[in-house]
């Protein structure tokens, strides 16, 4: 089960509102490469993992991604909080405002609501880990895109932290993959999920 901690993994304190930037960063809340997708992907993949390293790692990284979801939500919230309609219009973000006001809604930067089609859970342990490695790279690339679009130092400090975590997660998933491949070779585990359970 989960227990809530009443603090963020990394502090978020944004001085200036900027609804336009909020509408870009929201993509890491509910977009295809975002933190919600990451968390649901990892926590859902756990159930068919054959080895303790992958079971543990998916649990722990899946949990950290929930903390990242909260950080991104805080960014979006603080960037748009109390911004009057005129500011949304000036920054050309009225589409978001019309449905969601100044709240945090899981959608991509292009406006598609969160869709689980952006994650894969195949039941095949190796395929899952390859998916996870790709997912971490995609999330890292999106944070790089955001860094190119944002010139707010308060925001960028937080985005850089999140970006760095994707690099660490990629590293750990790579180690879990190496371990799984050597376990498979030594027949310590049967990996494909195609075998009948006893």
């Amino acid at each position: 089960m989960f227990e809530y901690k009443k603090f963020l993994e990394y502090p978020v304190k944004i001085k200036n509102t900027n609804p336009r930037l909020a509408n870009i960063i929201i993509t890491q809340y509910g977009g295809p490469n975002g933190e919600l997708a990451a968390s649901v992907r990892y926590l859902s993949q756990r159930y068919t993992m054959p080895d303790k390293v992958s079971k543990g790692l998916l649990t722990d990284i899946g949990t950290e991604e929930l903390a990242h979801l909260e950080i991104v939500g805080s960014l979006v919230s603080q960037l748009s909080k109390c911004a009057p309609p005129e500011e949304w219009e000036k920054l050309q973000s009225w589409e978001y405002y019309s449905d969601n006001g100044a709240s945090v809604y899981p959608q991509s930067a292009q406006g598609s609501p969160f869709n689980a089609a952006s994650i894969a859970v195949t039941g095949d342990p190796l395929t899952n880990l390859y998916e996870d490695l790709a997912a971490e790279q995609k999330a890292r690339a999106v944070y790089d895109n955001i860094l190119r679009l944002s010139d707010d130092p308060d925001v960028n400090e937080v985005i850089k932290f999140l970006r760095q975590r994707e690099v660490v997660h990629f590293q750990r998933f790579g180690e879990a993959l190496d371990k799984m491949q050597s376990d498979l070779k030594q027949k310590k585990i049967t990996g494909t999920g195609l075998k009948k359970c006893k």
């Binding site: 603090f7 963020l8 502090p11 304190k13 944004i14 909260e70 939500g73 805080s74 603080q78």
Partner: peptide, 9 residues
């Protein structure tokens, strides 16, 4: 609450 500016430094 944690997502509020006032709760962060």
């Amino acid at each position: 609450w944690p997502w509020e500016k006032e709760g962060n430094k």
